[in-house]
Design a protein around this nucleic acid. Structure first.
Length: 194
DNA sequence: CAGAGGATCGGCT
DNA sequence: GCCGATCCTCTGG
């Protein structure tokens, strides 16, 4: 691979927009359409993998299409998809989903008073809605019966790009991808121009 | 072992 | 829009 070839991580982050995350929970299927992702590239100062492999981030360094789940701010889990070959630390953060299947159970899990628009609008809310935590870290998203990625044949939406959200480093790197026009985006409006 | 910081959320102004 | 909660993880001594 040469330097002018787009990194697989960025390509995956864009490709995943419009695809589904599916969770099986006690035999019930919960799913959502991916409307927002962020790429955390190899050698990215904002990435958990930047300072090398640790106990927490080791699935980022494993093969691609495995779940990397971490806990943040004492309150939220975030779901990522590992995105490069074995030995390279990189991942795609799933930032927001549009509810598709199992909405009744998702509403129940998120609690009364939460607007449908907010059920999975934000990475912590995605994991809260789908009961994703460190138990799922390392899950193979091609074979695990609890969590996987799917396509449903719908036409992929137009994809926009912007800076990533909530970073103190590499804040100018435009590796956030979103479905244009979706009402389920987590970012501020200035980051999602219509 | 102590300290600091963080890919967030929800509540309040 | 701003702010605090909350606790895991990593780093340095």
């Amino acid at each position: 691979m040469r330097a002018d070839v787009p990194p697989a991580t960025g390509a995956l982050a864009a490709f995943l927009i419009g695809r589904l995350v599916v969770r099986r929970l006690d035999g019930v299927l919960l799913s959502g359409r991916i409307v927002e992702t962020e790429a955390y590239l190899p050698d990215d100062p904002a990435s958990h993998s930047f300072r090398g492999r640790t106990q927490r981030n080791r699935t980022m360094f494993g093969n691609y299409l495995h779940a990397y789940v971490y806990f943040i701010y004492g309150s939220a889990y975030c779901l990522n998809v590992s995105s490069e070959a074995d030995g390279i630390g990189a991942a795609v953060l799933i930032r927001a989903l549009e509810p598709v299947e199992g909405i009744a159970l998702i509403r129940e899990r998120r609690g009364a008073g939460v607007a449908d628009r907010d059920l999975m609008r934000g990475p912590g809310r995605v994991c809260s809605a789908l009961d994703i935590d460190r138990r799922l870290d390392g899950a193979d998203l091609e074979t695990d019966p609890r969590l996987w990625l799917a396509e449903d044949g719908t036409i992929p939406p137009a994809v926009g790009m912007s800076a990533r959200i909530g970073l103190s480093r590499a804040a100018d790197v435009h590796q956030r991808f979103y479905a244009r026009g979706s009402r389920y985006l987590s970012g501020r409006r200035s980051l999602s121009p219509r």
